[in-house]
């Protein structure tokens, strides 16, 4: 009891402080740009003022929304493939031994870097970008589903089979819910990753999307747009994180919130 009370508190709670943190960061930026006024860095205020121009522009807004659409689809596909794979790994040592080295080899490879090769095969359309996002998001979800399924108590499964539950039913009705908090930790990483992969692949493909706007603006020396896009993308990252935290709270409010330690960009 005393231990828990005396501890500093290991979780990062949402609330007002993060809002202050955002404002503080903007303030630091403003002061920095104003006092140093180094080559071409716009201050926070003029960047914020630039936001309506970008978000009001039909074409760039559609570009950003299109990016988000691809991201959502890619994430959904990755989820549908990775969760069963991870759960199976967690319940079968042999299967885990088979798959693990393959995952380890592919871990340090930047998935967005596969974009040029995938574009050779699938062209520059949606398919390439979706595939890259799926690849980028999958690893952490597989990993956490694996860890979650591995930690499921053996006795819970014994009682389930004693009740006559079949293998697949046990996986879906016992292992999945028990591993859900851990899977969601993977999903949180996955969401950030989806965003990163999306932007990076668009930077590399230079066709459309948020990443493309960002780097085209850089090429054309439209620095206000560059900074405004950075702001938009950062806000997307933060908002997705907050939204996810709400979903997580609703799904597994019984488990302690946990910040993942593995935000692996792709």
């Amino acid at each position: 009891m005393s231990g828990a009370l005396l501890r500093a508190g290991g979780t990062l709670k949402p609330g007002l402080p993060p809002v202050f943190a955002c404002l503080g960061l903007l303030l630091v930026w403003q002061l920095y740009a104003r006092t140093l006024s180094v080559g071409g860095i716009p201050d926070a205020l003029s960047t914020v003022r630039e936001l309506p121009t970008i978000l009001g522009d039909r074409e760039s807004l559609y570009d950003i929304l299109d990016s988000l659409r691809r991201m959502a689809i890619g994430f959904a596909i990755a989820l549908a493939l990775s969760v069963p794979l991870g759960l199976l790994m967690g319940r079968s040592r042999l299967f885990a031994a088979l798959v693990n080295p393959l995952l380890m080899v592919s871990y340090p490879v930047p998935k967005a870097a596969l974009m040029p090769i995938i574009m050779l095969w699938l062209g520059v359309g949606d398919a390439s970008k979706l595939l890259v996002i799926v690849l980028g998001v999958s690893l952490p979800i597989i990993y956490h589903a694996y860890q979650g399924a591995r930690a499921v108590e053996e006795k819970m499964l014994w009682s389930a089979s004693a009740m006559g539950m079949s293998g697949p039913a046990r996986l879906a009705r016992i292992v999945l819910p028990a591993a859900l908090p851990e899977i969601l930790v993977g999903c949180r990483t996955g969401i950030v990753l989806a965003l990163i992969t999306m932007i990076t692949s668009e930077m590399i493909a230079r066709q459309s999307g948020a990443g493309n706007i960002l780097f085209s603006a850089l090429d054309m020396a439209q620095y206000e747009t560059v900074y405004a896009m950075i702001l938009v993308i950062s806000a997307l990252g933060i908002l997705l994180d907050v939204a996810f935290e709400y979903v997580r709270g609703a799904l597994v409010g019984w488990s302690e919130p946990r910040h993942d330690l593995a935000p692996i960009p792709a």
Partner: peptide
């Protein structure tokens, strides 16, 4: 804590 909460989910590559 709030700084990390805000900055951790920002896709750094965008910076």
């Amino acid at each position: 804590k709030p700084l990390v909460r805000v900055l951790a989910p920002v896709p750094k590559i965008a910076l």
